[in-house]
Design a protein around this nucleic acid. Structure first.
Length: 277
DNA sequence: CGAATTGTTGAGCG
DNA sequence: TCGCTCAACAATTC
């Protein structure tokens, strides 16, 4: 469930518990988490120091002293936590990095969907979705003209369009429902049918919503916690996601939950009407 | 006990 | 070649 605000929150936590630490040993309990050869991965990183941790979209980039970068994607339920070496792990702890200072960083993932890939720094673009990842959802990177151009070339529904990381990085199911609600746009509206005003409002809301959610340290739904095990604070500010059957916070009409592109989708039929041609 | 849940890739189709 | 749809992945909760 981690979308951009949650991944950024994790990154900030990792800076405090992992940056500057030197790896003394690595235990791998579930090999598929690592897409490289596991032995190559271990040999390349043992003895190296985590110099910095960056983020691109929902991808974490661990920068190592030997010009290597570990790309880590949490997918559904991946999470990192630290503890003294030898602390408790369970059957969902798949990788443990032991540091020379007596602490260890554990990667835990109940669904086993998350992946780590080690590449030469600068070659990150060869990793999975980073090849085609769209701009960061910031005013500096995410240009309205680009967004309008992409919208115009897509006949698909706006919700799957926004979930596609090629168009803009960082949105997932929760924040797509939120920004569409804020923008009063129906999730099934064809992307190329949005008016210029709607496109501009949507563009601004994507930037604002993700920035505000990041400020609140993300949304805790089901299981998300940051690197310290704390809950995020944004879930109390959600207006659409998880509110199927409830009253719309804006107009009081009953919110509806449907499936769009195989995903649970909540919206207000009154505020977000489908506009036919 | 089947359905729902989530992000991303890749196959298949037109 | 491109864009869209859908299956697959995995495990837990309801």
């Amino acid at each position: 469930m981690p979308e951009l605000p949650e991944v950024e929150t994790v990154r900030r936590g990792l800076l405090k518990i992992a940056k500057g630490r030197k790896i003394n040993a690595i235990d791998v309990y579930y090999g598929k988490t690592i897409t490289n050869d596991v032995e190559d991965f271990r040999q390349a990183l043992i003895g190296q120091t985590i110099e910095d941790i960056d983020r691109r979209g929902k991808y974490l980039l661990f920068r190592f002293s030997n010009n290597l970068t570990m790309v880590s994607h949490l997918r559904m339920e991946g999470k990192y936590y630290n503890q003294p070496i030898g602390g408790p792990i369970d059957k969902h702890t798949h990788v443990v990095f032991q540091f020379t200072d007596g602490t260890e960083l554990c990667y835990h993932d109940t669904r086993k969907f998350g992946r780590m890939t080690l590449v030469e720094t600068g070659d990150e673009k060869t990793v999975g979705g980073l090849k085609t990842l769209g701009p960061e959802p910031t005013a500096a990177d995410f240009k309205l003209a680009f967004f309008q151009d992409e919208l115009g070339r897509s006949r698909g529904k706006i919700k799957p369009f926004l979930l596609n990381q090629r168009h803009v990085a960082g949105l997932g199911n929760i924040y797509v429902d939120e920004v569409l609600w804020m923008s009063k746009i129906n999730p099934e509206q064809p992307a190329n049918s949005l008016t210029p005003d709607q496109a501009a409002v949507l563009h601004d809301n994507i930037i604002k919503e993700l920035a505000v959610a990041t400020k609140y340290k993300g949304t805790t739904v089901h299981s998300f916690t940051n690197a310290f095990g704390d809950a995020g604070g944004f879930q109390e500010r959600l207006n659409a996601y998880g509110r199927g059957g409830e009253k719309c916070p804006r107009c009081g009409a009953k919110m509806v939950k449907i499936k769009v592109a195989q995903r649970g989708t909540t919206f207000c039929p009154h505020c977000q009407p489908l506009v036919e041609d």
